[in-house]
């Protein structure tokens, strides 16, 4: 019997939510008994080669590459989950949403007190993904099926969610597992 596949990615996030996945500790042994990790920083698989049951998305969309990855996940996963506050509402990166993009660049590459940039240019290599005008919550880019709040969501939250979904049960988080911090 082939095991259901779980894919994960970190968009505009800090990998804290992925740390929280690892924080399920020895339960990860139980987890790999019932699922296979597919495309994920955990496996270093870069491209989807088969259909996945669950996609866990950390981080919102701050650049065009984030959008492409997110759309790729939507295409290849049955259930897409916002993992953590950044995926849900943009999080810390979204603090730039009130600052015009030009000012963000100027602060980061020209005017910031610790900037060392003798060329005086803002990086514009075609290899760099274009920054979006603001940071978008995942649900404003593709349809997200579930949301696991938290910064990061606790290991128990992630565990409960995966166990429920893998057993075809509704995802009902108890009071103690809904946290926004």
């Amino acid at each position: 019997m082939t095991k259901p596949k779980v894919a994960t990615t970190s968009l505009a996030g800090c990998f804290g939510c992925h740390m929280s996945i690892l924080d399920i500790d020895d339960r990860i042994l139980k987890l790999v008994d019932i699922i296979d990790f597919h495309k994920s920083p955990v496996t270093d698989i870069k491209k989807f080669s088969e259909r996945c049951l669950v996609g866990l998305i950390e981080g919102g969309c701050c650049n065009e590459e984030n959008v492409h990855v997110l759309q790729d996940f939507r295409k290849n996963c049955d259930i897409l989950i916002s993992l953590g506050d950044c995926a849900i509402m943009g999080g810390i990166p979204a603090m730039r949403n009130n600052v015009p993009l030009k000012e963000c660049f100027e602060e980061a590459y020209l005017n910031g007190v610790t900037v060392h940039n003798p060329s005086g240019r803002i990086p514009d290599s075609p290899e760099l993904p274009l920054l979006l005008d603001r940071v978008y919550p995942c649900s404003e880019v593709v349809k997200m099926d579930y949301h696991l709040p938290g910064c990061p969501p606790s290991a128990d939250t992630i565990w409960e969610a995966l166990v429920a979904l893998l057993n075809n049960k509704p995802l009902d988080l108890p009071y103690s597992l809904i946290k926004y911090d």
């Binding site: 579930y146 009071y175 946290k179």
Partner: peptide
């Protein structure tokens, strides 16, 4: 702009607590 992750009031905030009580994930 409710950034609970670094807000000093988090955990003691009535808006946040109301969302928790209502079971709002997002």
């Amino acid at each position: 702009n409710h950034f609970c992750m670094f807000c000093e009031k988090s955990g003691n905030c009535e808006l946040q607590a109301m969302a928790y009580r209502l079971g709002i994930a997002a």
